[in-house]
Amino acid sequence: MLMPGVVNYGDAKAKLDAGVGGIFITSWADPALLYQLHGLREEVGRPFDVAIDFEGGRVQRFSHILGEHPSPRDLAATMTLDEVEAKGAEIGQTLRAHGITVDFAPVIDVDGGGLEVVGDRSFSEDPRLAGDYGAAFARGLESAGVKAVFKHYPGHGRASGDTHLGEAVTPALPDMFGHDLIPFEEAFAQAPEAAVMVGHMVVPGLGDGTTPASLNNHAYGLLRSHHNFNGLAYTDDLTGMAAISNTMSIEQAVPAALAAGADQALWSSASDINAVIDACVYAVETGQIHPYRLESGAQRVQHRLDSIQ
């Protein structure tokens, strides 16, 4: 249920030896790692996921190796849904050829709130189009054997700021149902195999109205009950984003996320993997993480890992 960032082969091997279910290739990783993933799988000898951020446009890591592709906004403006699905498949084939099995894409936030962090990473200012195009891109990735991940639930497009920089508050939950949550409803229905990333936005009316969604059990409850979503739920980055890191250490944030309902806790910054594992064990032993929560999340991850060919 842990997905730490890695920077090179040795770092990845050490964290996998500690038992993590997946690794995240950070933007500052050694590019050589992209040519070593198949060998890493052979050496580790068990299934695990390898994730990357590759949306197209300004968020496409190691594009000198993995290729250059238009932004989601440009895709939606110049391509049909079928063409975007084909583009997703093209990207997915390249990622999978290098040993990458999870793409933290597509963004299905609705643009229109004037946030630079969203902008052309969004397919559209129209909620339904954002969902339709995101679903098409996701189906393409999935057809290539790469897990697509819709982000950033429940919607970052109209938040008060950028969660990389600090707290960001969305409109109140009733307002979200009529706008920001629509793309997720569309996308979940049209690409049911995809996963979801829960963002760090604070949503007034969701639980206590002060806890970021990624650490808020009400956010995961909404995801599971309102949307009937049964797939994998990832957190957004728990160390590289000030909305979390300003107030919590990684040893605090990971157990809090798992207790709230995340199936895999994601983080990018350097950390002591054994200290994080110890913090999670302590959280289980003291009742912060309920055994059922641990079991349900681990089963979802294991089901995912069993499907990797």
Score class of each variant (00 low, 15 high):
Ala172Leu: 03
Ala172Lys: 09
Leu173Phe: 11
Pro174Phe: 01
Pro174Asp: 12
Asp175Ser: 11
Gly178His: 05
Gly178Leu: 03
His179Gln: 09
Asp180Val: 04
Asp180Glu: 14
Asp180Trp: 08
Asp180Ser: 10
Ile182Gly: 07
Phe184Met: 05
Glu185Pro: 04
Glu186Met: 06
Glu186Cys: 09
Phe188Ile: 14
Ala189Met: 05
Ala189Thr: 11
Gln190Asp: 10
Ala191Phe: 04
Ala191Pro: 00
Pro192Arg: 12
Glu193Lys: 14
Ala194Phe: 10
Ala195Thr: 01
Ala195Tyr: 03
Ala195Cys: 03
Ala195Ile: 00
Val196Arg: 08
Val196Trp: 12
Met197Leu: 12
His200Arg: 14
His200Phe: 12
Val202Asp: 10
Val202Lys: 13
Val202His: 13
Val202Arg: 13
Val203Pro: 04
Val203Arg: 07
Val203Glu: 06
Pro204Asp: 08
Gly205Cys: 05
Leu206Val: 08
Gly207Asp: 12
Asp208Ser: 10
Asp208Met: 09
Thr210Leu: 14
Thr210His: 15
Ala213Val: 06
Ser214Asp: 11
Ser214Ile: 10
Ser214Phe: 14
Ser214Asn: 12
Leu215Ala: 02
Asn217Ile: 06
Asn217Asp: 14
Asn217Ala: 11
His218Lys: 12
Leu223Phe: 10
Arg224Ser: 11
His226Ile: 05
His226Gln: 12
His227Leu: 14
His227Asn: 13
Asn228Ser: 13
Asn228Tyr: 09
Phe229Asp: 02
Phe229Thr: 02
Leu232Pro: 00
Leu232Tyr: 06
Ala233Pro: 01
Tyr234His: 15
Thr235Ser: 07
Asp237Met: 01
Ala243Lys: 13
Ser245Val: 01
Ser245Arg: 14
Asn246Lys: 12
Asn246Met: 08
Asn246Tyr: 08
Thr247Gly: 15
Thr247His: 15
Met248Val: 05
Met248Tyr: 15
Ser249Arg: 07
Ile250Trp: 03
Gln252Glu: 15
Gln252Phe: 02
Ala253Trp: 07
Val254Asn: 00
Val254His: 06
Val254Leu: 02
Pro255Tyr: 09
Pro255Lys: 03
Ala259Gln: 00
Ala259Tyr: 01
Ala260Phe: 06
Ala260Gly: 02
Gly261His: 03
Gly261Leu: 01
Gly261Met: 04
Asp263Met: 05
Gln264Ala: 15
Gln264Pro: 07
Gln264Arg: 11
Leu266Met: 15
Leu266Trp: 10
Ser269Lys: 15
Ile273Pro: 05
Ala275Trp: 09
Ala275Ile: 06
Ala275Phe: 07
Val276Arg: 01
Ile277Lys: 03
Asp278Leu: 04
Asp278Arg: 08
Asp278Phe: 02
Ala279Leu: 03
Ala279Met: 02
Ala279Lys: 02
Val281Leu: 13
Val281Cys: 07
Tyr282Gly: 11
Tyr282Glu: 14
Ala283Lys: 10
Ala283Leu: 07
Ala283Thr: 11
Thr286Tyr: 03
Thr286Leu: 00
Gln288Ile: 05
Ile289Asp: 00
Ile289Trp: 04
Pro291Ile: 01
Pro291Val: 00
Tyr292Thr: 15
Arg293Tyr: 03
Gly297Thr: 04
Ala298Tyr: 08
